[in-house]
Amino acid sequence: MAEIQERLKNKAYSEYSYATRPTKFTLFIRRCLLFQIFMFFKLNLKIMMMVVKGHS
């Protein structure tokens, strides 16, 4: 994505220039296997609980 980022960052005052961007740490954590394995189970459990509670 580096080339796109480069192209867009020069467009100050465009809508994109006001968008929040992930930091390097955020990008790392998004693909960190250990953390993502934990998230996989956490999110699955959360969704499962929501489905069960969502109808009677």
């Binding site: 867009l8 809508e15 994109y16 968008a19 929040t20 961007r21 992930p22």
Partner: peptide, 15 residues
């Protein structure tokens, strides 16, 4: 809206 803008900007997508 912040979440979505951020993802689009990260992927280099105009809107």
């Amino acid at each position: 809206s912040v979440f979505t803008e951020s993802v689009l900007a990260e992927y280099g997508i105009r809107w």
